[in-house]
Amino acid sequence: MKIGVFAPSRATAIIDAITDAGGDAVFDPAATDDVDALVTVGEEALLSLIPEGVSVPVLPIAAAAGIPSVARENAPDAVASLVAGDFDTEAVPLIAATVGERTVRALRDVMLVTTEPARISEYAISSMGERVAEFRADGVVVATPAGSHGYARAAGGSVVAPSELASIVPISPFAIDRSHWVLPMADLSVSVVRDEAEVELLADTRRELIVPTGMSVAISTAAALSVAVVPETTPVLSGSGVR
């Protein structure tokens, strides 16, 4: 089995574990579809796969909360399970944000934020063609279930179990009522109603583009990430068995 490895450094221990289990390790392969599966170490390595897409199963090691992942100390056994074919696959939803002709993808979240500090803009959220809310804030984050464990939660949002629902949370809203919403990712949109500074779209913290006033950002599901779930994988909702 040919296994690609993405990690901040050479990841010698992971490469050795693949070789010891009878696999063929390729560090940072030029094309992800040239291998049978991938191993990523750390969140950044995993997120680096998302913009271009990946079609083979991915075994995340030491990924952030919300993503089926393996602890670093269990990595050698997990890699051996992967090489032996002792794994299932789980489809982890990705989110797509479309502005005009441009579409970007994210695993954890997309955000609209003002490019200047302490400048408030007005945003609107619509779902299934109906206006859900309008509010003034520094920005708004739309998080996948995986991303709902991260910045969205820190901003006051709900943790969402694996599904095709999104957690939508205003960032520093200019109101006492700090509402947030859980809505289907399909047929969802966020628009900039009024701005006091340029509003930027970020995808998994990547700075992507400026969103003009009055422009809607169409949110939808993208092709899911296939995550390899081995016996060593930690459940997403710890103690629940939910991966």
Score class of each variant (00 low, 15 high):
T205C: 08
D16P: 11
A17K: 10
D109I: 13
V229P: 07
A80L: 03
I61V: 15
Y123N: 03
P173T: 05
L225F: 03
V41H: 02
V242N: 09
A124K: 05
P8Y: 07
I176L: 15
E208G: 00
V236M: 06
A63P: 10
L49D: 07
V132I: 15
F87P: 06
D16N: 15
P117V: 08
P117C: 06
G157T: 04
P235Q: 07
S163Q: 10
E198D: 15
L107I: 09
D20G: 13
L59Q: 03
M215D: 11
A133N: 08
V193Y: 01
D86N: 14
L38C: 10
A155K: 01
E122I: 08
I67F: 02
R72E: 15
S179K: 03
L49W: 08
A143Y: 04
A80Y: 01
V41Q: 08
D36K: 12
A13N: 11
M215I: 13
D36V: 02
V54D: 04
A75G: 04
D109L: 10
A91C: 03
E101N: 13
D24S: 14
G23S: 00
E44A: 15
V99F: 02
T103D: 08
V54Y: 04
V140W: 01
T213R: 14
V58T: 05
A133Y: 00
E52A: 15
T233D: 03
A118C: 00
P93K: 04
A124S: 13
L225N: 06
G22T: 10
V39L: 07
L225R: 09
A222E: 11
L82D: 09
V92I: 14
T19W: 10
T115I: 11
P76G: 09
T19E: 14
E200Y: 05
G4S: 09
A17E: 02
A166N: 04
A152D: 00
V199A: 06
V192A: 05
G239D: 11
P68D: 07
S238A: 12
A75N: 03
I61L: 15
A84C: 13
E116D: 14
P57D: 02
L82P: 10
S172Y: 14
V242E: 11
Y151V: 12
A143T: 03
V79S: 04
D16G: 13
S220G: 14
V242H: 08
V142S: 02
V83A: 11
M215Y: 09
A228C: 02
V192P: 01
S191A: 15
S191N: 11
S81E: 09
A197P: 03
V113F: 13
V110F: 12
G147I: 00
L107V: 08
A152M: 01
A118M: 08
D138L: 01
E134C: 06
D86H: 13
A133Q: 05
